[in-house]
């Protein structure tokens, strides 16, 4: 893979995470546990999709095939999406949704912080913008982890189940293939190993405050970064892309 092609793939990986999680969270719009939380989830979804939008504009420019951000979002098929498996997992209860947010937000916060130092000026600038929003997201989901874990026996149990079910997707966040490691060597991509300690210690701190234990003996899943997804992504894309596929070229 030449360096432009690996950069394109790298931007897609970052953007796809933001987009797919943003879309998942947008499905919660009008279903929040109470009005303020409903608004919070919709706001965060909007931030995530907005960050993805900036990245897709850049990715389209790097690809140089005269495509737009809409083409990348609405006309790619499942295997071409490079998001991690964590973000495509469907919404169940609120504890699960917040647990998914918390795991991603923690990763994203340290990732964006590191990406600000990228030699690629556009990626660094978008990261500097995104980190401001990521900070609010992480504070939001972290507070919910504490509130739910330290809440009623029911909320504690639900959160415990959420961590048990989602923990298998944690390691994939830090996976890097040869092309990406090459970008790390060039100072463009983030060396994910360098942020793993910060990730682990923040998760541990919040979980401890919440009275949660880190699940052990979990078999780790991966594949999303290679385009091999769980069955859930296909359904998500079918819905997300339906309008654009029914009315090709439609703008809104």
């Amino acid at each position: 893979m030449n360096s432009q092609a690996s950069l394109f793939q790298y931007i897609l990986k970052i953007a796809d995470n933001q987009l797919i999680l943003g879309h998942r969270l947008s499905e919660q719009c009008s279903k929040g546990p109470f009005l303020e939380e409903d608004i919070a989830c919709s706001n965060i979804a909007l931030d995530l999709i907005g960050a993805a939008n900036s990245l897709y504009i850049y990715a389209a420019a790097i690809e140089g095939e005269n495509k737009t951000e809409d083409d990348l979002v609405f006309l790619r098929s499942e295997r071409a999406f490079k998001n991690v498996l964590l973000v495509e997992q469907p919404n169940t209860d609120f504890a699960y949704i917040m647990c998914r947010q918390f795991l991603f937000d923690t990763y994203d916060y340290f990732f964006q912080q590191a990406l600000q130092k990228s030699n690629d000026q556009t990626l660094a600038a978008i990261a500097a913008k995104t980190i401001k929003e990521s900070t609010y997201h992480l504070r939001h989901s972290g507070n919910w982890i504490i509130r739910l874990g330290d809440g009623t026996p029911e909320s504690n149990l639900r959160l415990k189940n959420a961590f048990t079910n989602l923990w298998c997707y944690v390691d994939e966040l830090f996976e890097q293939d040869a092309a990406e490691l090459d970008l790390v060597a060039q100072g463009i991509a983030v060396d994910t190993q360098s942020i793993k300690t910060q990730f682990t210690s923040h998760i541990a701190e919040i979980m401890q405050t919440a009275g949660m234990e880190i699940p052990s003996g979990i078999f780790m899943q991966s594949g999303g970064k290679k385009g091999v997804h769980t069955e859930h992504l296909g359904f998500l894309l079918a819905e997300m892309q339906s309008v654009h596929r029914s009315f090709p070229g439609v703008k809104w």
């Binding site: 303020e36 939380e37 608004i39 919070a40 706001n43 965060i44 909007l46 931030d47 609010y136 504070r139 939001h140």
Partner: peptide, 13 residues
Amino acid sequence: LISEFGSTACKSL
């Protein structure tokens, strides 16, 4: 503070 996310992206409630 009621919520850090308010009526628009830039406001808290």
